[in-house]
């Protein structure tokens, strides 16, 4: 039985006890999936699954009252967000049913767009998309083009260590049991550049920011919503003034508030309409958290987050000599 059918069967089994199940459905064109909210058996036909299921559906969990019974379909990376939300007691374990499946990875739509545009195709008018084996085939405006999947996977999938959901009530299909290496090489490469160049990089990137806060809204762990300190007047962390420094201040707030919490699902970066690589800031913090406290967020719901704890004698923090 294909995984999608197994998933539908699993959801159908649990649906009577749930208010809603969140999964992916067909989007506005063949190249996009969009979240669907399943409330009845009839809705199950809308469900799809594949390399286009890019959204992290765990983001929706905190938008419902804690008392609602919610089912959610998760990729490996999304399941870590669920674990983190559980750890912070933002959702109730007994009110959430997690559907896991072996995730082969998702594509980076920007990469797809660029690669097919290089072949002279219009990525905005895709009428058919198929992913078979290690090839991706698109039809657009009567023309068909094919590309190797290896060039299209999202960066986070190339270094993925959690293909199988780390937490699940229903798991369909065979676990992949695969693990890539992630030594934070991208962070190290960026930090090998001279300081002035790093600052100029953010200056250039942030100048494109339109302050839409899509990064915040897509983030499963940005749970303050309307109480976000980026929008309060007192204290006025980010002012109404235009300017790169104001835009960048928000990114520093986002990164600081996610230190020790970020599960690197990459939603901030994916949701960014102007393609600013903001996940890099969060990965930098995660790299340091891993080094200092040997901790990864979103693995164990019972773990104590390192920045909410301390040791009288820290093992790895070097008290500065003066």
């Amino acid at each position: 039985m294909p995984i999608l059918d197994e998933l539908k069967a699993a959801i159908a089994k649990r649906l009577p006890e749930l208010d809603v199940v969140i999964g992916w459905g067909k989007g506005f064109d063949a190249l996009h999936h969009t979240p669907v909210f399943i409330t009845s058996e009839a809705d199950l036909d809308k469900l799809v699954l594949g390399p286009l299921s890019v959204q992290n559906l765990a983001t929706y969990l905190t938008r419902y009252p804690k008392t609602k019974k919610i089912g959610v379909v998760v990729k490996g990376c999304d399941s870590r967000s669920v674990v983190q939300l559980l750890q912070e007691k933002l959702i109730n374990r007994e009110n959430v049913v997690v559907f896991g499946f072996p995730c082969e990875g998702v594509v980076d739509l920007e990469k797809v767009k660029r690669a097919f545009e290089d072949q002279g195709m219009e990525a905005a008018r895709v009428s058919e998309a198929s992913f078979q084996g290690d090839r991706c085939t698109l039809t657009s405006g009567g023309k068909a083009g094919s590309l190797p999947m290896a060039d299209l996977w999202a960066d986070k999938c190339n270094r993925c260590q959690y293909h199988d959901a780390v937490i699940s009530d229903e798991f369909v299909g065979q676990r992949l049991e695969r693990k890539a290496e992630d030594a934070y090489a991208d962070v190290a490469a960026f930090e090998a550049k001279p300081l002035a160049e790093r600052q100029a990089f953010w200056q250039e990137q942030m100048s494109r920011c339109i302050r839409c806060y899509a990064c915040r809204n897509a983030c499963p762990l940005c749970v303050c919503r309307d109480q976000c300190i980026a929008q309060t007047r007192e204290p006025n962390w980010v002012s109404q003034r235009t300017g790169v420094e104001e835009k960048f201040m928000f990114q520093m707030i986002h990164a600081s508030h996610l230190a020790g919490r970020c599960t690197e699902c990459g939603e901030c970066e994916r949701a960014c309409p102007v393609g600013i690589p903001i996940l890099l800031l969060k990965r930098k913090n995660n790299k340091e958290i891993l080094e200092l406290f040997d901790y990864r967020a979103g693995i164990d719901p019972e773990a104590k987050p390192p920045l909410l704890a301390f040791k009288v004698e820290e093992e790895k923090i070097n008290e500065r000599g003066w």
Partner: peptide
């Protein structure tokens, strides 16, 4: 004790945004 962990994190965060970590010290 809590401050020590947080401040160490900021100190290590500064290089990625292009600020010399020597501009910040805690003691």
């Amino acid at each position: 004790f809590y401050a020590r962990r947080r401040l160490e994190m900021v100190k290590r965060f500064l290089p990625v945004i292009g600020i010399d970590p020597g501009r910040f010290e805690y003691t």
